[in-house]
Each structure stands twice: as structure tokens, then as C-alpha cells.
Amino acid sequence: MTPLPRLPMIALAAALMTACSPPAATTPTSVSETTVTLEEVVGAEQPWGMAFLPDGSLLFTEKAGGLKYFAAGSSAAAVAVAGVPPAFTEGQAGYLGIALGPDFAESRLVYVALSSGTAEANSTLVVRGRLTEDASALEGVEEVFRGDLRETAYHYGSRLAFANDGTLFITVGEGYVHMQEAQDPKTTHGKVIRVNPDGSIPADNPFADGVAGNPAVWSYGHRNPQGLYYDGMSGTLWATEHGPKGGDELNIITKGTNYGWPAITYGIDYSGKIISDKTEAPGMAQPELYWVPSIAPSGLTMLTSDVYPGWKGDLFAGGMNGPSGLVLVRIDLQDGKVIGKEDLMKGEYAIRDVVQGPDGYLYVATKDFDGIFKLVPGE
């Protein structure tokens, strides 16, 4: 196990805001007395998404390695799960997000997001299939959602989350070269998608009639959302998304809302070029929190257990890159509002995903070739 230092850590520039209002002062640094150590659970090569089964076993995706199963309490390596369609795996493409169907105990349905197609024409694809009793394969695999085609291997989004009403939210990146289309509700580039579990369109989607937008679109103006969490207690959908050079965001996602990219942004292009001289505009939502410099946020969950003193009810986001990346961020919430943040494990790991297991502990998947780890609280 790798011991972690006492906290606090230095806070980044961030803001506490409400939708469509100017940003407030920088978010204060939260300081907790809780310490954690990392305990390796299973080795993995470029793990991307995780989903725990009710018995504590783990399904996870590897970017190029497909879907894997790790039995609870096992000392053996994870094993491959057959049946998932082939993925396009160049650049940022590959096997990506994963979620269990809300009725998994009865249906055993597993939902997997992946990049599908060729370098010249590919898209975000979500499929579902029934996990066999021995967890060796997905059977009856069928398409749930397929995004618009693009000719780039970047910005897929691909996080999945189910709402209380059983509908499925899917994040879709704008493919980088299609950034302007993030502002067009008629495309799926740079959107949060909402569909029924079988892929059909809910009647109350904002563009369900297909006149002003794509029927599957729930919100738009996103860049590359790689964190998604639905709070079943409050009905709040939270998302993190990558900004360019600076301007990563935490947002509350609501029906039909425009989140501004690229018309407004707190970041600049990687070249230093100004993407937009505006950070706010009428009719465009402001983030609850933003990061300058970037942390490349990926993975998002809320702690609902009492395992870590003082952390219950807070959000946790992974950070993968950038000047202030390699971090797990605790986002301190009070009454649904961000009141502070704390950087954990700073400089140690690039974290691709973070989830809470059925045992109440937090688990992180590291971005590159390390594995999946359990966060164990200190004495």
C-alpha cells in the first residue's frame, strides 16, 4: 500500500457559481483530517470505466482490452468477457464507459460505450447485453445509441448514468474538430444524450419532436464530458468535462440547457489562441466549479457511505493531466452547492475513473498501465 500525505493541498483557481450568473470568488480550499492509503485490487492496462456487481465482483473496461471481470475476493487476474463488439482504438478511442442496468439483479443487463468505426468515419456507440451467470460473456448484444459520425479519434465523452425513472444519460464529446457543432442541438456532437434503456426516445426530451434538435439530445454546448453521476436522492445530474487549456468544468445538467462551448469558455486553445473572449453569455449556463489550470477531469461519483469521516455527501472527481492533474478532487458540497474542494493524492496517479463499491469504499482506476485501487482510510 502507498501511504498518502496529510491534507490540505493547494487549491486551484475555481469558482462557485449558479447557472447563468457570473462566477463568484475562487472556491476555498477545504481541509479534512481524513487520510487514505491505496490498496491494489487488480492489475489493469488503461482501465476506463468500472461497475460493481451486487456481490462485490467488478466489471471494467480497458481502452484497448475490452470488457473484463474480476471476481470478488479473488487473487487471480481479471478475465475477458466475450461478446462485446469490436472497437476502434486509435488516439482516445476504445472501450469506454460502463453501467449496469437499474434492474440488473433480474435482467443482468450491462451497458457499454465504445468507439465504433474507422479512422475516417467513427462514432460513440452504446450497446447492451446480458451477462451470463458465470460472467464469461455478454449475450444478445444490441445497439442502444450511436452518435453522429466524425473523422477524428478524440473527444468521445462516453460516460453512462441511469436516472430514477430508468432513462439512460450518455455523454458525447464534440470530436474536437466539430467543436462549433456543440452549439447545434440537431447534432450529437458535444451533447448529453437521454434515451430509454432500449434506445427509444423519451416523450419528454426537449427536442423529442425532432424539429429544433435531435430527439435524443438532453443538453448541449459541451466539449468532452468524461464524468457523470446521477444523485438518486435529489434527482441531480452532475457532469465534469474537459476544457481546452484551462476551463475544465463541473456542471449540473438540466433539460434543454446550453452549457456554452465554444461560445463561452474559461480556457484557451493549446496553441495559446483565444477560442472566445467571453466567459458568460445570456442563455448559457455557468459551471458550478471550473479549473484553471486544467486537471483533465474524468470519472465522477458521490460518497454515500460513512467509511471516510467528514466526506459523506461529497463528490469525487479524477484528474488525469495538465499542470495540476494527477489528482483525486474531493468537491465539498453543502445543500447541493459547492463550498470548497480538496486535492487528494496530488502528483501520484492519473485517475481515469472513481466509483463507490457496494462495501462503501471508493475505488479508482488509473489512466495508464497501473490498475484499480481501493482507498483505505487511515487510523
Rank of each mutant, 00 (worst) to 15 (best):
R6V: 08
A15T: 13
P23A: 05
T27D: 04
T29R: 05
E33D: 11
V36N: 02
L38R: 01
V41Y: 05
G43I: 02
A44P: 06
W48Q: 06
L53H: 00
G56H: 00
T61K: 03
G65Y: 04
G66L: 04
G66P: 07
L67H: 03
A72S: 14
A80C: 00
V84G: 10
G91A: 10
G94N: 06
G97Y: 12
L100S: 08
T118N: 14
A119V: 12
A119W: 04
S123E: 12
T124R: 06
L125I: 04
E133V: 09
S136R: 05
V144M: 09
G147I: 05
L149T: 05
T152N: 12
T152D: 08
H155I: 05
G157H: 01
A161Q: 07
F169E: 03
V172H: 03
G175S: 15
D184P: 07
D184L: 01
P185V: 00
R194G: 10
P197Q: 15
I201N: 09
D204W: 13
D209C: 06
D209R: 09
N214D: 15
A216C: 13
W218F: 13
N224T: 11
N224I: 01
Y230R: 02
Y230T: 12
Y230E: 14
G232K: 08
T236D: 02
L250C: 13
G256C: 05
T257S: 08
W261H: 03
I268G: 04
D269L: 05
K273I: 10
I275N: 01
E280H: 11
E288N: 09
S294L: 09
L300G: 15
M302R: 15
T304A: 10
S305D: 08
V307C: 15
D314K: 11
G322S: 11
S324C: 10
S324R: 14
L326A: 08
V327S: 02
L328N: 03
R330G: 08
D332A: 15
L333A: 01
G340H: 03
L344M: 13
I351R: 01
R352D: 09
V354C: 09
V354N: 03
V355Y: 04
V364L: 13
A365E: 00
D370M: 07
F373C: 02
L375F: 15
V376H: 15
